[in-house]
C-alpha cells in the first residue's frame, strides 16, 4: 500500500475513534441505564451521554472536547516497516487535528508552547509488535487528561490500605483508586489493572488491558474471578455517573499480570473516563476493514 493511501486509512481510524462510540461501550452504558432504572438521575445522566455520542457521530465532531493522547498498538507483518508506519501516522495525526477531529493537545514541557498539531517529543505514542503474517492489525485508543490524572501506581505492601502482597492486596489498591477518582475523571469509567511488572511495564500493561472488549472474559480463571469481584464491589460504592450517585460507577475492570522481581510488587491502574475512545483496523493486501 502506498504512503498516501496508508495515511488516509490512519486518518479515518482517528476520525472514528474520536467521533464514534465503540459498540461495547455503548452496550455497557445501555446496560447501566437499565440497572439504574427509569426516573433516576443516574439513568438520565447516562442517557445524555449516549445522546451526545449520537450527535457527535452525526456531525463527525469529537465526543468530548478533550480528545486526549493517541496510543497506537500495531502488529505488523513482513510487508511493512516501522519507519513507514510512523510517518503515515504522524501525517494522519496532523491532518486529523486540522480537521477538528483532534484538539491540539501536545504541549512542550519546557517552553509551555502547544505544537498545534499533536506532534512532538514522545507523541503520538506507538507500540510496535512484529508478526509473521502479512498485513496490519492496528488498535488505537484516545485517552483524555482528566482520566490520566486519576490513574495511580501502588507498591505492595501498602500500610495505609493494609494491603499485602497477594491478590487481596491488589483488590484493595483498585478499590482505592476508584474511590479516589470520585468527582474527577468523568464516571462511569473503565479500569485497566497491571499486576506486577516494573514501574513502566506495570503502567503500560494496565493501559493495554483497556483495549480488550468490555464484554469479554479473562482467559485466566483466577483473574476472571478477580475482575468480576472488583467490578461488583466498585459499583457498590454508590458513586455513580458523574459522581451524582448510582450503581454505575465503573463499566468494567480488566486485569493482566506480569512476572515481577522478588523485591517488587507494583499495582497500576489505568482509569479511562466514559468517553472511552478506541477504534481498530485490519489491513490485508489492499483490503482494509474497521471494527
Amino acid at each position: 500500500m502506498d504512503h498516501k493511501e496508508l495515511t488516509g486509512h490512519f486518518l479515518e481510524l482517528i476520525r472514528r475513534a474520536s467521533t464514534v462510540v465503540p459498540p461495547d461501550v455503548e452496550k455497557a452504558i445501555r446496560q447501566g441505564i437499565e440497572n439504574e432504572g427509569e426516573g433516576t438521575t443516574a439513568a438520565s445522566t447516562l442517557t445524555l451521554l449516549l445522546e451526545n455520542c449520537d450527535k457527535a457521530s452525526d456531525a463527525s465532531t469529537p465526543i468530548c472536547q478533550d480528545t486526549g493522547a493517541l496510543y497506537f498498538f500495531i502488529d505488523y507483518g513482513p510487508d511493512y516497516r516501522q519507519k513507514q508506519l510512523r510517518e503515515a501516522i504522524e501525517e494522519a495525526t496532523a491532518e486529523a487535528t486540522a480537521n477538528y477531529y483532534l484538539r491540539p493537545n501536545a504541549v512542550d514541557s519546557v517552553t509551555g508552547k502547544n505544537s498545534g498539531n499533536n506532534l512532538g517529543a514522545g507523541t503520538p505514542i506507538i507500540h510496535f509488535h512484529e508478526r509473521d503474517e502479512d498485513g496490519l492489525r492496528v488498535r488505537l485508543m484516545l485517552k483524555g487528561g482528566g482520566s490520566e490524572n486519576v490513574s495511580l501506581q501502588y507498591k505492595l505492601p501498602d500500610g495505609r490500605l493494609k494491603a499485602g502482597r497477594d491478590m487481596d492486596g491488589v483488590r484493595k489498591c483498585v478499590i482505592d483508586a476508584i474511590f479516589q477518582a470520585q468527582g474527577k475523571g468523568c464516571s462511569p469509567g473503565v479500569v485497566g489493572v497491571g499486576i506486577g511488572g516494573n514501574r513502566d511495564t506495570s503502567y503500560s500493561g494496565a493501559k493495554e488491558q483497556l483495549l480488550r472488549d468490555l464484554g469479554d472474559t479473562n482467559p485466566d480463571p483466577e483473574l476472571a474471578k478477580f475482575e468480576a469481584q472488583v467490578l461488583a464491589e466498585a459499583n457498590s460504592l454508590g458513586i455513580g455517573p458523574m459522581g451524582l450517585g448510582g450503581k454505575t460507577t465503573v463499566l468494567g475492570v480488566k486485569a493482566g499480570a506480569m512476572h515481577r522481581l522478588p523485591a517488587c510488587f507494583f499495582v497500576s491502574t489505568a482509569y479511562v473516563c466514559w468517553a472511552y475512545r478506541k477504534a481498530f483496523m485490519s489491513v490485508k493486501g489492499s483490503e482494509v476493514s474497521y471494527d
Binding site: 470520585q182 468527582g183 454508590g238
Partner: peptide, 26 residues
C-alpha cells in the same frame, strides 16, 4: 447538587461511599 437549604449531594455521596469503602478496604 448544592441547594439553598444546606444540602450538598457531593458531600452526601462522598460520605456514603466512604462507609462502603472502609468496609471493602480496611
Amino acid at each position: 447538587t448544592m441547594d439553598s437549604h444546606g444540602v450538598s449531594l457531593h458531600d452526601q455521596i462522598e460520605k456514603k461511599s466512604r462507609e462502603t469503602y472502609d468496609k471493602l478496604v480496611k
